[in-house]
Design a protein around this nucleic acid. Structure first.
Lengths: 214, 214, 214, 214
DNA sequence: AATGAATGAGAATTCATTCAT
DNA sequence: AATGAATGAATTCTCATTCAT
């Protein structure tokens, strides 16, 4: 179908980083969506922040909604699955396992730019129910299951007291999410900045205290 | 069938409701802002939900931003102050005090429609820094202080172990906020609905367990 | 048709100045139309300046355009005719007649609030051709005829040199109109205010110098 | 009838005219502002007259007011300065100088489309005081100074009688402005059109007669 | 592959006009 | 006669999307 002379078409002077573009755009879009919300983000600004023209955006994404979906999709990652492995194969104490899971959560998800996705999804879940559902299924529920599994392991091994693992996992995820949301919202206008490490240490302390067998 | 005369009684195009209008508009706006975010809310829709025309909105609010401010202002309420009283004059155990504060928080703030304000502020803090600051100063910080005071009381009376009251208060507020946000976001698309009472009971259990003196 | 008991209807508490209202409204409208132009004038403001509610305006004027027409109509007055009389019956020198006509023009038309009508008509003639035509026929042309008649009288009596009366009248009306327009436009933002008397004196001097027989 | 192929050649929805656009828009806006006044001019119409869509206007001008300012700015031109040169270096009689200045005024300012700017400024000076001030400083005052200088020159060379040059200049500018305003207002609805040349000849005659030494 | 001028539907805002009181 | 709350059409302005280059 393609004619041989196509190969002789002069190579345009740009050509570079064909692959990099979408990532740059998604990254710029992520920042702006998190900062201003979906409706509040102008594609003009996304393009400008990515250093390209507005038209270029449409070479890679059909429209604003598809860009939004891409932003969510590209940033939820398969990270969760790694944590799952850890739970299954972990050899140490359950307290240590819980500590590690939470540290991992914060390092790889909560504290990263991608953590803003949480805020975004929370704000836009009403406007994009399918995406919210997707996020719920792919991110939130898996995490709850992993953490619940770790709790259950501790109980079964006699390290933790008996609690309802699912509900416990949900509740103690609250402060983690809170911390992440805070960074992307009030954190910016609070004068004495929140010390994340101290916060996380206190949180771990609470969780483990609450799990101590009677 | 109906008497001809009745049929011809002109239905007034509108009713005079000067007193009620602003509240109705603010209420309609609250729902939509929470549901769709600031930028995603059309004033047309606000007016329609309040049962008035677009123009009427402008009789009571200078513009969209002022409406937004009014929504926030009218819904933060002075509720917090009542809780403050409770802390100061409470006679019972500190565990009971904490339980009551949390129940109050949920009943009067978290579970109410106004709880959506929290979600709204979180999403829009970047776009309205002054209002976010206001919300921080008038709602969040006071609550933290009240809860911290209750923790401190428990410690001083030997009922709780020693913890940093401020940080503890912040951390254990996480699940409360989480629950409220959930209701206005993923709650809508989660199939097995979250049982708020069970969640809160578990949370209280965790908090009190974590505070138990060694 | 009217029933006797109409007479027993309680006399409402307002009642006062039934006749005065339209004049107050027209006067307020005149000021605003002159100041802001037709389109730039809000009926709200007209009503406010007249000290009545917006609705009241519609008791007296069918709509904005009718109000505008009333403003023009009520302010062109029959003043002109008095000047006409003067020309016909004046006994003194033609120079004195011209002097009087100009002084009269300034005192009764140019310097009065109604002088703003000129500015208004100039600005809005394109939007209201019929009214412009009316103004032209009822105000401008008659004035030109009167002044031309005075010039002609002077020439015929040997007091002035021979000129084309019509064109002469038009040209020397220019400074008069200019002065009136100035008051309602740049006059407000010019720092050294224009001395109208000096201006008029110079103008009269020019006119009479130009008419001096060779 | 026409070859099918020709008929299917897609007419571009628009043409790229970045360079020409602002001038075209300003020109369209000038006509409409002069014709209908600032408030009476719809941006839709400006765009339509310039042959572009509404949105395009906003690519070049931030808002209606900026467009208005551009219209004024672009049309006052530095024409005045040429006349200034003439006064300084003119070698002939002062009467000839005055004649030339007036002819120049009419040819280059009064009779041109840009002359409508005068009408516009007069009508809108109240709504845009800063622009009016600008116009006063950049156009009106310079002209007065130039004409006054020419009068003074004549007096000093014994060609004219002694008059107050400033006031004289102001007064005799009246008919010029009048003529220009007339063209853009009543001129349109007057049946016997004003002969500008005859008017200007009469005016020059008056001015020079009035300046003749005793 | 990239651009950015142009578009036009849609949202915010204004204001002349209506009408129940 | 007077009011002023309510209306909705008209206008300004925004921004996602298109497309010739």
């Amino acid at each position: 179908m393609s004619t041989p002379h196509e190969a002789t078409i002069a190579k345009p002077r740009w050509e570079r980083r064909k692959e990099a573009r979408p990532a740059e755009l998604v990254s710029a879009a992520l920042e702006l969506f998190v900062e201003k919300g979906y409706a509040g983000t102008r594609l003009d600004d996304v393009a400008a922040r990515a250093g390209v023209s507005k038209g270029t955006l449409y070479l890679y994404f059909e429209n604003k909604e598809e860009l939004f979906k891409a932003v969510v999709r590209e940033n939820i990652v398969a990270r969760i699955s790694q944590s799952a492995e850890e739970v299954l194969h972990f050899e140490g104490s359950s307290a240590e396992l819980v500590r590690r899971l939470m540290a991992t959560w914060w390092d790889e998800y909560g504290s990263s730019t991608a953590g803003g996705i949480g805020k975004l999804m929370m704000a836009e879940s009403g406007n994009f129910p399918e995406i919210a559902r997707f996020f719920l299924d792919e991110v939130i529920e898996p995490w709850h299951r992993i953490l619940a599994a770790a709790i259950k392991r501790g109980t079964e091994r006699g390290e933790f007291r008996t609690v309802k693992p699912d509900m416990f996992a949900r509740v103690v995820t609250g402060p983690l999410v809170m911390l992440s949301l805070w960074k992307h919202s009030f954190g910016a206008c609070s004068q004495q900045p929140l010390d994340a490490n101290e916060y996380l240490a206190m949180h771990l302390d609470i969780v483990l205290s609450a799990l101590r067998p009677a």
